[in-house]
Write a protein that binds this DNA or RNA. Sequence first.
DNA 1: GGGGGATGGAGATAGGTTTCTGCAAGGTGA
DNA 2: TCACCTTGCAGAAACCTATCTCCATCCCCC
Lengths: 365, 365
Amino acid sequence: MTAAGNHQASRPSGRRLERAGIRDVAAAAGVSITTVSDALNGKGRLPEATRRHVREVADRLGYRPSAAARTLRTGRSGLIGLTVTTYGEEPFTFTEFAYFAEMARAATSAALARGYALVILPASSRHDVWSNVALDGTVVIDPSDHDPVVAELARQGVPVVSDGRPGNCPVHAWVDNDHEAAVLGILDHLADAGARRIGLLTGTSTDTYTRLSTTAYLSWCERVGQEPVYESYPAHDPCAGAVAADRLLARPDRPDAVYGLFDPNGTDLLAAARRYGLRVPEDLLLVCCSESDVYATTEPPITTLSLKPGRIGTAVVQLLIDAIEGVGGTQPVQQVMPTDLIVRTSSQRRPPRTKVSPPRSPGAG
Amino acid sequence: MTAAGNHQASRPSGRRLERAGIRDVAAAAGVSITTVSDALNGKGRLPEATRRHVREVADRLGYRPSAAARTLRTGRSGLIGLTVTTYGEEPFTFTEFAYFAEMARAATSAALARGYALVILPASSRHDVWSNVALDGTVVIDPSDHDPVVAELARQGVPVVSDGRPGNCPVHAWVDNDHEAAVLGILDHLADAGARRIGLLTGTSTDTYTRLSTTAYLSWCERVGQEPVYESYPAHDPCAGAVAADRLLARPDRPDAVYGLFDPNGTDLLAAARRYGLRVPEDLLLVCCSESDVYATTEPPITTLSLKPGRIGTAVVQLLIDAIEGVGGTQPVQQVMPTDLIVRTSSQRRPPRTKVSPPRSPGAG
DNA sequence: GGGGGATGGAGATAGGTTTCTGCAAGGTGA
DNA sequence: TCACCTTGCAGAAACCTATCTCCATCCCCC
């Protein structure tokens, strides 16, 4: 009665839609708001009868606890940010679009399975958007060195987990592929297929993926005694990729096998090979890094390296939520994920026996 | 002084990271919290000197207003939901993955430009996730009839805008393509290219896209006096699409042109045509609906219909935010967006003059 | 028969912000 | 000089929940 009186007195105008609050439930059930809260959240010491009664009344009134009030009280919003550093106006770069899409899909799944929702927040967005949303933690894709967003989040004590090795960012944990192993595996695979001179199509940017992959290529060349043959281009420009592919095949020391680090390289290289009358795989072996399954249906199908963004997205979110909830503080804070080489016609001199067979042990030869 | 005293008394243990609150700023600046709030939010009647001073002190203390408290007080969270109805476990269906990814990208951009952030929330997710996040509004992609999530949101007074015509859902507005016009345009285009019997690859599901497109096809057939030739399959199953494509070309009344309603139909039809020794476009004209640009590089390149998900995502978000902010209550609540036909080799009997040329007026012949 | 533990539940406070109301000082016109 | 308006700012309510503290029983057992 008191609660009801208070309630009526405290709502002189009835602002918005008359949503039922916890007070309304308490009044209707004839109990205190403490009892309602405890009953609905499974806390406190209450007999099952009271719990059931309160739940029933709450259902009847269509009561939904206010997310904002709960967040304010508990300090938990159930929201985690998904951030990607951007190079232009758009929130996502197109070069890694397939990667990002798949990664975001997996991250969303993983978050929801643990009761969290994902908020997409490009790193370049206005600061007011960032401070306007209460985040329990954030996933950062491919953070740049000294990323200001990460620094600010760290200052606020928000856990951050990154996809890709962080430069100098204070992250709680990171997940990344074993890029060196992947490149070495591909080069060995191409050499096994008969390649004598393997070329590389790489980028001019300094992110870890490009850097580690290129370094691995160079060290492999040094190990086997091959002169490096590679072309670099700004990976954000799709046209530049086609030009670089052409340049690579136009060289006097033309390679007889090429690995392309970026998604569109496969079609670009295929087109360039066609222009120069090179048959794939007879005259040119081809592999590129891609998440797109279009390379299963090109003519010929092209062998691709998948970074398995789904696995990464899942792992990143698990690590982040663990950090948020404070579990497993002792387990390793970095995780190196394997990649998948999907072998298709373009990298096999002889017709393959089985359609798709990832090599179990690349170093068998 | 009073505020400071209050503050110290009210924080006996200093729970988490000592984040500066508005009270700390007020105390440090020697003003009241009202003045701080007004100064930072550009409200109230304050001389510029005071405003500047407060802002400076707030900056010095690294003050960030609590998003949760602001949301609780104002009733606005700055968050809008992005929901896609799901058919399985995963948050997104793979059939429309390219569509969804592009649409989400554009929606994210549009929302951020207006100071909102996007939360991804599959419709099938547990109820507690939905009620745990304060949403100012929601975009629903392709809602099913009597969608329970939409009904619940409507009950709570949360504005909902849908991508795709809503069945019986109480949405504030919707945006959709002009599917009939698109199909009619494609059929006319194929007929212009010399098709005598045009087949359709369609779905068994009852969503509006499939329904409207199929109906348009049937009415076109009736109008021009052609017997309909079509195969239906469950669009969620990619293998079923390949089988249906094969079935369509195996019919005794084999069509000499086919339009496929779903993204993978192009490659499926191309593979089937190859199996039956049909040359494209000489023996078979091909068009499919797809957002993927892989059809620019297939052999031959395939004409595609783009639904322009980017434009739709932008429009949907604009409409939603308008509804949230209460502007433009009189403007139309539904918006029909045009599609783009990207004409390539597969739908032209004679080699094209220009590489890519969307037909300006399809009824020119 | 009374101390003490377990049970069931109420009261009050905190969490941080926005905003309505109101107050004091100073200026202005009659 | 006084009423009145404007300026500059302070106080306090309200938003809604979760939880800490505490009180009243009731029962058990010495």
